[in-house]
Write a protein that binds this DNA or RNA. Structure first.
Length: 457
RNA sequence: GGCGCGAUAGCAAAGCGGUUAUGCACCGGAUUGCAAAUCCGUGUAGGUGGGUUCGACUCCCGCUCGCGCCUCCA
């Protein structure tokens, strides 16, 4: 039985889908005006893991991850770049797709874009107005009236009065309450706009997720995910909008992944301490980055550093080395086998991927001892469920990070042949010189019964 | 100020009221022409002060420290 930690109740709960046998899941995706950073990589990978495990558990999954392609920052950036919003967002959507693909993230079933769902948003705003939860302020913005929605704050554990007491709340004269949030923004001069019953304007940020989730998944669905920083106000506001408009429960299970940190501080665009995915991939294999994310629990903070990625790379090499030494078959995972049972139990315990990884390492040790093809098959099969160990071990072990200036494989092979000749003639000094030369180039030789193989250190 | 999360060995990171987490690094041994990889073995833990218990890293309370949200952010 799968258990999921529900942010709404703050406890692990048995996962019971609304419709037996199928799951509907919505995850807040990217605002596309810049390259994805490591924090984005984490959401992509974490919910890819969730999605994979749900499917592996035999559930039919409808996974939706939205794309925010209209907002203040996009408008600002397009203006700075002197290009159209469409050009800007198309480019960064492409980059996002490339990054996600590199990390082994499977495509969601739907990737709705905000700009393609404005009519649905307007309908939702209309319904909120009809229900007495929305009002148009003097300046033209349409706001959501948080005081009129009972239960506002239930997801983030905040009370409206505590929020009022805070010092960081915007003061906007047009709002009836400072905490009211905007559903529809009145267009200013030179800004893109859509026509609406409330005048020309564009959607507020939160409304798109309420509109697109109900469009694709219905008014009530199973799982809603996103980064921890979206819990408040974004997800709180989504609940207010969706439940306020539809008068029924919105989401059963809320999942929030922990932050990526740098030097124990949140990695974020505002702090400017972020690393983009493609920057990292110039120096590390994408699978290493994926493994780095997979081996931490999704709710824990994850500290980024080169040392940690180096560590992840060495650990992943151990798994691939075990695979290389055996001959895994192509059959499916045998779920009656001991390691698979442990793996399944770990994943069912709120997606405990660190524990699942520990099982993989135990399995690898077992494979190394026994050279069992069956266990090697299990190792590859279980790892595959995490999106790992999909490549030929040789390819991984000999891979160079993109843009690297390592010694080419042909040159390495030539040197290995020369060394073999030297060894044949018992000239071990010459053989060791060649090994040393390769070692300097970051190449490690491994003499075996079937000859010499090599890998990058 | 309000709300919440965390503190595990050299580093990273899990489970668990009593029995080996796991990975990297380190040490000893096997293996090797020498290595590497692998195997065998050893060691290194759970912030601090109390409490509950036959027994606590694991449950409860206090304290200290760190982090997050309360403002756009995955």
């Amino acid at each position: 039985m799968l258990k999921i930690y529900n942010s709404l109740t703050r406890e692990k709960q048995d996962f019971v889908p609304i419709t037996p046998g199928s799951v509907r899941m919505y995850v807040c995706g990217m605002t596309v005006y810049d390259y994805c950073h490591l924090g984005h990589a984490r959401v992509l990978v974490v919910f890819d893991l969730v999605q994979r495990w749900l499917r592996a558990s035999g559930l039919q999954v409808c996974y939706v991850r939205n794309i925010t392609d209209i907002d203040d920052k996009i408008i600002k950036r397009a203006r700075e770049n002197n290009e159209s919003i469409g050009e800007l967002t198309a480019r960064f959507i492409r980059f996002m797709d490339e990054d996600a693909a590199a990390l082994g993230v499977e495509k969601p079933d739907h990737e709705p874009r905000a700009t393609e769902h404005v009519p649905q948003m307007l309908a939702l705003i209309g319904q909120l107005e009809k229900n007495g939860l929305a009002y148009q302020a003097a300046a033209g913005d349409v706001n959501f009236s948080v005081r009129k929605f009972p239960g506002y704050g239930k997801l983030s554990g905040k009370s409206l009065d505590d929020l009022q007491a805070g010092e960081r709340v915007d003061v906007d004269a047009g709002k009836e309450d400072p905490l009211d949030f905007v559903l529809w923004k009145q267009a200013k001069e030179g800004e893109p706009f859509w026509a609406s019953p409330w005048g020309n304007g564009r959607p507020g940020w939160h409304i798109e997720c309420s509109a697109m989730s109900s469009e694709l998944l219905g008014k009530h669905f199973d799982i809603h995910g996103g980064g921890q920083d979206l819990q408040f106000p974004h997800h709180e506001n989504e609940i207010a909008q969706s439940e306020g408009a539809h008068a029924c429960r919105f989401v059963n299970y809320w999942m929030h992944n922990g932050f990526v940190r740098v030097d124990d501080e949140k990695m974020s665009k505002s702090l400017g301490n972020f690393f983009t995915i493609r920057e990292i991939l110039k120096r590390y294999d994408p699978e290493v980055l994926r493994f780095f994310i997979v081996r931490a629990h999704y709710r824990s903070p994850l500290n980024y550093s080169d040392a940690h990625l180096d560590d992840a790379r060495h650990a992943l090499s151990r798994l691939y080395t075990a695979l290389k030494a055996a001959q895994p078959g192509n059959s499916e995972v045998d779920w009656t086998e001991a390691h698979a049972l442990r793996f399944g139990a770990a994943m069912n315990d709120d997606f405990n991927t660190p524990e699942a990884c520990a099982v993989l390492f135990d399995l690898a040790a077992e494979v190394n001892r026994s050279k069992s093809a069956e266990l090697a098959t299990q190792l590859r099969g279980l790892s595959g469920l995490l999106g790992l160990l999909r490549r030929d071990p040789q390819v991984f072990l000999q891979a160079t990070p993109s843009g690297g200036e390592e010694m080419p494989a042909e040159r390495i092979e030539t040197l290995i042949a020369a060394r073999a000749a030297a060894k044949q003639g018992r000239d071990y000094a010459a053989a060791d010189r060649i090994r040393a030369e390769l070692a300097v180039a970051g190449v490690v030789l491994e003499d075996g019964v079937k000859g010499t193989s090599w890998r990058r250190a």
